[in-house]
Design a protein around this nucleic acid. Structure first.
Lengths: 164, 164
DNA sequence: GGGTGATAGTTGCAGTTGCAACTAATGTCA
DNA sequence: TGACATTAGTTGCAACTGCAACTATCACCC
């Protein structure tokens, strides 16, 4: 009836809730697997997409991983230094290079992927049957909303996907 | 049949998916509201819990916001400097202080909360009826899993930022 | 061709973060 | 009371982050 409406509980606030859960899961993933191979999450993401899709430019990696090009650049530099990937000249465009995993990189990738699958399986096991599909659907909708909201209201973004 | 199992697609990896969606939403929230009041997300969280629960110690704030005590300490320092909250001596324990919003802080809180509710309403509007409740339930389960996994397996993390 | 504007990727910089180490105040137990 | 472990909160540090600015290359078009 007055301006003193219902109390606001942070714990019920969806963005907060998503953030907390996501961070806990990321932490579990990083702590159990990624860091055991000396990889940060951005590096793991780069390796993951390079493991699936043949040679990619850094730009394509950025799109596939939803990461800022700066982040990709640094992750690629570290992975190259560590011998996990190599850059080959891109015949069609000398500004970019074709990134691909080395044998060592493929080895690491091959060891992490099963562990990632295992972690995901544990995660899904915590859900009821069919609940994962519904979760994915909900996340799709939220993502679509956030992408729209981000591009409409946020300050002038240079280009593509906003990202973490 | 051999070690070359199904390809791994990062885009289907649940931790990754959660991270991307969460970050987009946080960004939309921060860009549209929090930053308009000069508040970072950690600061907004502190104000949110102080707005609901009378005086709290920094420690209690840390628990309620699921933030590191360091983060809380810095957020509180900035909020105090900006005049949004004040620290009062804690009679029972001189190590901590009782934190509470000032009049100015309550004013800001009172203006942000309706906007936060509005954003959440938009978010929920993107979902089907009943889908939000199912999402919450799923998040609860994932959270429970992550808390368990984190406390059991985690130990010395490197220092990689946490994000899937 | 040569100018103009876009694009790929890198780097400088300022701000944020978590962990470890630290100070200060309690608590405990003999 | 006096040593010793605990807890509240702060700070040093080293790493990560995004943005803006920059270089190099490409694309267009007169």
């Amino acid at each position: 009836m007055n301006e003193r409406a219902k109390a606001f509980y942070l714990g019920d606030f969806l963005p907060y809730r998503l953030s907390v859960v996501t961070n806990r899961i990321s932490r579990a993933f990083a702590g159990r697997y990624a860091s055991a191979f000396g990889l940060s999450i951005p590096e793991w993401r780069v390796m993951a997409v390079l493991g699936s899709f043949a040679p990619l430019t850094a730009n394509q990696v950025a799109e596939l991983t939803a990461m800022d090009k700066t982040k990709v650049s640094r992750a690629v530099a570290r992975l190259a230094r560590a011998g996990h990937l190599k850059r080959a000249a891109n015949p069609g465009d000398r500004r970019s290079s074709r990134l691909a995993l080395t044998a060592k990189g493929r080895g690491t990738h091959g060891r992490i992927v099963p562990l990632a699958r295992m972690l995901e399986a544990e995660l899904v096991a915590a859900l009821a049957p069919g609940e994962r599909a519904r979760l994915d659907a909900a996340l799709d909708k939220l993502d679509a909303w956030a992408s729209r909201a981000g591009s409409h209201f946020e300050r002038r973004d240079a280009c593509a996907g906003a990202e973490p």
